[in-house]
């Protein structure tokens, strides 16, 4: 599902509420039928994986590639006093890194800070899929990458989401991307969901059509450039 909306529409707030970073004043958050409204973020992490806009946020810079993967391998699970990295895990990491086609499988011992933003974001994506989450939250995770890398990371996102059958919420400022990726699009405005497009309607939707729909739903003139360009 993709989420669009102007600045301050509440997209990131929504994601932060779902993840448990912000406390909720009213209402409930249900995850697979389970009420998680009062759980702190770290207790929801077993079910919810997050990818941030800043590629630096998803990995621990001073630690190596394999150490970061080992950290993600225990997402939402108890951490023991056994070694974090063993030969078995190393083989698994190498196998998974091979899927990225970035040559990282030969750089397991390299500190992550030496990797580029795109490589780090790709790694974060991989870390997300090491443990199957029920929900993936993607907060403009391609926004701070250059166009070419952004496209690559988006493609990788699509592949990992489809291969692993992951439910994901993706915030984006790119309307074309919003319609092209995934199978459902919601538009937010002033903290509320004002549009929910799916199925056939979505397949036939165009960007001008989307803008027109927004105009009707919100009763406001859309500030197109603000949505498109930010």
């Amino acid at each position: 599902m993709t989420i669009i909306g102007g600045n301050g529409a509440g997209k990131s707030t929504l994601l932060n509420c779902i993840a448990g970073v912000y406390p909720v004043e009213k209402g409930k958050i249900l995850l697979g039928g389970k009420d998680v409204t009062n759980l702190p973020d770290y207790q929801r992490a077993g079910d919810i994986a997050r990818i941030f806009q800043d590629p630096m946020m998803g990995t621990a810079a001073s630690m190596t590639v394999e150490e970061n993967l080992a950290l993600a391998l225990k997402r939402g699970r108890p951490r023991t006093f056994k070694r974090g990295i063993n030969e078995k895990r190393r083989i698994l990491f190498r196998e998974r890194l091979l899927q990225l086609k970035l040559g990282l499988e030969d750089r397991l011992n390299v500190p992550v800070k030496l990797l580029s933003g795109g490589q780090r974001q790709a790694m974060t994506l991989l870390m997300t899929t090491l443990i199957q989450p029920r929900l993936v939250l993607l907060d403009e995770h391609t926004a701070s990458l250059d166009p070419k890398t952004a496209l690559k990371v988006l493609e990788l996102t699509r592949r990992l989401v489809e291969e692993n059958n992951l439910t994901s919420l993706m915030v984006t400022h790119n309307m074309e991307q919003a319609l092209r990726v995934g199978n459902r699009t919601i538009m937010m405005h002033e903290g509320k969901v004002i549009l929910d497009i799916k199925g056939k309607q979505r397949e036939e939707m165009t960007i001008p059509g989307l803008i027109e729909l927004f105009h009707q739903a919100s009763g406001e003139q859309i500030q197109t450039d603000r949505i498109l360009l930010t």
Partner: peptide
């Protein structure tokens, strides 16, 4: 490792549970 990563990137570690 979780302790080291906490000092490195706390937000990430909370998101990893």
């Amino acid at each position: 490792q979780a302790l080291r990563a906490t000092g490195d990137n706390e937000i990430m570690m909370r998101s990893l549970g």
